[in-house]
Design a binder for these strands. Structure first.
Length: 858
RNA sequence: GCGGGCGUGGCGGAAUGGUAGACGCGACGGAUUCAAAAUCCGUUUUCCGAGAGGAAGUGUGGGUUCGAGCCCCACCGCCCGUACCA
């Protein structure tokens, strides 16, 4: 009998699918459509195991949905703009375009042998002018619709290289190349008005039933709707025009605990003082050191500068509070000014203790819950109970003494409004989306700057504004800025000499509408409405949890913006009907510690495993094993899928990434696991080949095997529907074992083997086709309808229930499936173990859950 | 710092509030073999016990319940995100 030989069978079936055009999607109103989309990859140069997991998951869903009668769209493309291409050009002197397209070719070559059923005819890369030209066209429509505007925003500035840095290019506050301390610098930049949609994007989260709850929660917190009070402090001895400082607070109930007013270093008042007073300028310059990330700002040491200006408390004009410039206050949120209440905010407390400002508690734990509570003014930590918790107000100015924070906030807002101290307002944390990038390898922003006409949109007939190819990366900065001819152009409005916008778009723009483009990838408009109406929405989107907020939120906004500009139907405002977030693929790190600095990392193939320990093959020296680490080139623990496929075949790689871990969790790649997967597939192949050739008449075991088959169909179908692919695989192991051990006749065994092939087809499609053929079935298993479980065939006559005494298992009871509760009670009380444990005592309670459990409470 | 998630045998993991450890890996024992590889069969949470059986046990500490891996509270550890990595 022939052996399982993936190298021979896999290319054969891939060619068969190609010939039959199995996975090319065309509109067909007679069948329900199903659009399954894995997040498209960045063309880094090689596919990695994370990609293998992502596309194996989407392919499984696609093949399963095909089998259940759906017209499936399962496309693939490349998110091809971005920094790595420019970094490669800087490092090795090539061109980002050549680097990118060469990488795409390599990756396609690596993807094809995996047997993923993509509709390759729809492929595109976002750096294709055909794609980004349509993106420019939409930009103009959105600009026209008032969805895009310009304003100032801060960037990371490398003062030595004189260039803007991405957050990841800032290491410990210094530029990655120059090593110079990074500064925050303001530039005029383009923005999408995503904040216009804050409320809608938040509320619509409730409609996304098939999204993970954690993602919806993360987005809700990110959008961050808050109710609060906006009011103004009147100032004492402030410069002209600063009679008042507007502040926003979400805790107006803590107004009597106010201790100081803090303003952002970018607040207009801070700017005014900076211009006049050198010591302020010095302090503000100090605040502007470091990167722009929220993390860097929040974890930096809290710094304050006493301006000498004071403000009057709105409830008591004789009470004056100092005004500090503070480095932890963001100009982007609220009004860029706050009042500090140290007793009830840890940051304010740290600040107050540092600058010796008063700490005044506003509320304390409600009566009876005080325990060991220490007031913050007596050295305790800031007291910040959850808002729904009832607390005791020490000096209630609005409402009762004991109230929840929520009620107290409402009462305080009402009180302040009644007394002319500010108004209650709703604010969002979500900021507008800055899309300008001072970089070459991105979609050019199609506008022109003219001295007379100002900012002028490029004419649509002049699109795409194509990136020039004659650029060099030998000097830091954006080559578009210094391009001799591309930059200079004629004003589309008056024709006078003008200057092209040299900022390009954030790559998040590219990935915010690719799902829509896949429905009509060659259209000469951004989308084709008929195709979009048929294929949208994405029925199942699959990708990494790392995109939970930004990419998914931007895409949700973009779909709305595309609806407003007529590029998507209203029904596509939420473009992803269901979302699944997969876990990472990890791999052990093998390292030898060094006396100083980084350890030496060893490749897995240099290491030998013996008795749970790892040794270097060369020297026999023991190496340290760090399990389950994220794969990283610098740690030498990256597994290359190409090697795996050469060694074991694509089906083994697919089977392995699906088995073991549930798909939403991280999975550790182990050589042993891959071998085990391969061994099992070999077992299935041999068993089925043997069955195909056997000739045993029907036996008494036929029915038992058929029952097992129907139960397996039922269980696997449920598991696949609920993304429990590891459970589905465990069930398939079970069916395989039942099939190989059964003494049923050949007829039934062949039927079960064929069903096994069908159930495995979405996971190991090549092997499934081969078995299908061995069994003499017609056509492709890829085109066969999904098997149906016959519920009547699954029913067993008896059930076995555990018997517990006081919640501890003491025995079990096998009874007819439909035995009445009273009968079960009698049998349970008469059971040896129960009699022994009760020892003559009367049971206090008897709980019988028919078919489930019996619990005797003594 | 803040927001979110996860934590179960030697390992990956299973378990609508109802027998904790399915299924797989590894390990151990056996069959087959001149021998090995491959393959097949069996055992495998820990501790006590010859055995029958018993006790403990799902990161830590508490709580709710007839019954908690699952629900609630506090803590510890790891992972993701933190708006210019994609």
């Amino acid at each position: 009998m022939s052996q399982y030989d993936p190298a021979q069978i896999e290319p054969k079936w891939q060619a068969a699918w190609d010939d039959a055009q199995t996975f090319s999607a065309t509109r067909d109103e007679s069948r329900p459509k199903y659009y399954v989309l894995p997040m498209f990859p960045y063309p880094s140069g090689r596919i990695h195991v994370g990609h293998v997991r992502n596309y194996t998951l989407s392919d499984l869903v696609a093949r399963y949905k095909r089998a259940t009668g759906h017209n499936v769209l399962h496309p693939m493309g490349f998110d091809a703009f971005g920094m790595p291409a420019e970094n490669a050009a800087m490092a090795s002197g090539g061109h980002p375009k050549d680097w990118t397209y060469a990488n795409i070719d390599t990756m396609i070559e690596q993807m094809k042998p995996m047997g993923w059923g993509f509709d390759w005819d729809r492929m595109f890369a976002t750096c294709d002018p055909e794609y980004y030209g349509q993106q420019q066209s939409m930009f103009l429509d959105m600009l026209d619709a008032g969805l895009i505007y310009r304003k100032n925003a801060v960037v990371n500035w490398d003062p030595v290289d004189m260039t803007v840095l991405a957050n990841e290019q800032v290491e410990n506050g210094r530029g990655w190349r120059s090593g110079a301390p990074v500064e925050r610098k303001e530039l005029t930049q383009w923005f999408f008005k995503i904040s216009d949609y804050s409320g809608e994007l938040l509320e619509a989260l409730d409609t996304l039933d098939d999204w993970p709850a954690k993602v919806r929660l993360m987005q809700a917190n990110w959008i961050g709707r808050s109710r609060g009070l906006q009011f103004a402090f009147s100032t004492v001895e402030a410069p002209e025009g600063f009679d008042r400082i507007e502040v926003y607070t979400t805790r107006p109930d803590t107004l009597l605990g106010a201790s100081f007013v803090g303003i952002s270093p970018d607040h207009p008042l801070a700017r005014a003082l900076e211009a006049e007073r050198p010591e302020v300028a010095e302090f503000v310059a100090e605040c502007r050191k470091g990167g722009t990330t929220e993390e860097a700002i929040e974890t930096a040491e809290k710094l304050g500068f006493d301006t000498g200006i004071t403000v009057r408390h709105p409830f008591d004009t004789s009470w004056e509070l100092p005004v500090y410039i503070a480095n932890f206050i963001l100009m982007d949120y609220g009004t860029g000014a706050i009042f500090g209440c140290p007793a009830h905010d840890p940051r304010d407390l740290e600040f107050a203790r540092k600058y010796d400002l008063p700490v005044r508690s506003v509320f304390a734990p409600a009566m009876g819950e005080e325990g060991t509570f220490i007031l913050p003014e007596d050295g305790g930590p800031a007291y910040v109970p959850p808002k729904p918790e009832t607390v005791r107000y020490l000096q209630p100015f609005a409402g009762a003494e004991a109230m929840t924070g929520e009620d107290a906030i409402d009462a305080a807002v009402a009180f302040c409004e009644d007394n002319g101290v500010g108004t209650g307002v709703t604010k969002f944390r979500l900021r507008d989306w800055g899309l300008s990038r001072q970089r070459y390898w991105g979609c050019p922003i199609p506008v022109v700057h003219c001295d007379t006409c100002g900012v002028v949109p490029e004419k649509k007939e002049n699109l795409p504004v194509v990136l020039p190819e004659d650029v060099s990366f030998d000097v830091p900065g954006n080559p578009l800025d210094r391009h001799p001819t591309w930059r200079d152009c004629a004003c589309p409005s008056c024709g006078a000499p003008a200057r092209r916008e040299t900022d390009t778009m954030d790559t998040f723009v590219d990935s915010s509408w690719y799902y829509a483009r896949f429905t009509a990838p060659r259209a000469d408009t951004p989308t084709d409405m008929d195709e979009a109406k048929y294929w949208m929405n994405v029925d199942q989107y699959i990708g990494g949890i790392e995109h939970a907020i930004l990419h998914l939120l931007y895409s949700r906004f973009f779909a709305r913006a595309m609806y407003v500009t007529g590029h998507l139907p209203e029904t596509s405002k939420e473009p992803f009907s269901a979302l699944f977030t997969q876990g990472m693929v990890t791999h052990a790190i093998y390292q030898t510690p060094q006396a100083e600095g980084r350890p030496t990392y060893h490749y897995p193939e240099e290491v030998e495993l013996k008795e749970g320990k790892a040794f270097l093959k060369d020297t026999g020296a023991e190496v340290e094993v760090i399990p389950s680490a994220k794969m990283s080139k610098s740690k030498n623990n990256v597994v290359d899928p190409v090697t795996i496929v050469k060694q074991y075949g694509a089906d083994t790689a697919r089977w392995f990434v699906l088995s073991d871990s549930p798909p939403e969790r991280d999975v550790e790649w182990t050589a042993a696991g891959a071998e085990a997967a391969n061994r099992h597939l070999g077992r299935v192949y041999r068993a089925c080949a043997e069955i195909a050739a056997s000739d045993v008449p029907a036996t008494a075991e036929d029915e038992a095997l058929l029952r097992e088959m129907h139960k397996a169909i039922h269980d696997v179908t449920l598991a696949v529907e609920s993304f429990g692919f590891n459970a589905a695989i465990a069930r398939l192991y079970g069916l395989t074992n039942a099939l190989t051990k059964s003494r049923a006749g050949s007829g039934v065994k062949r039927e079960v083997a064929a069903v096994l092939a069908q159930l495995m087809a979405p996971m190991t499609p090549h092997l499934a086709e081969e078995i299908w053929q061995l069994l003499g079935r017609d056509g492709l298993v890829a085109n066969a309808p999904w098997p149906l479980a016959d519920e009547a065939m699954m029913i067993e006559d008896t059930v076995t229930m555990p018997i517990q005494v006081n919640g501890k298992r003491r025995g079990e009871l096998t009874v007819p499936r439909d035995m009445p509760k009273e009968e079960i009670e009698k049998l349970a009380l008469a059971h040896d173990a129960v009699v022994r444990t009760l020892d003559g005592a009367q049971p206090k309670k008897l709980i019988v859950v028919p078919g489930r459990i019996v619990n005797v409470v003594a």
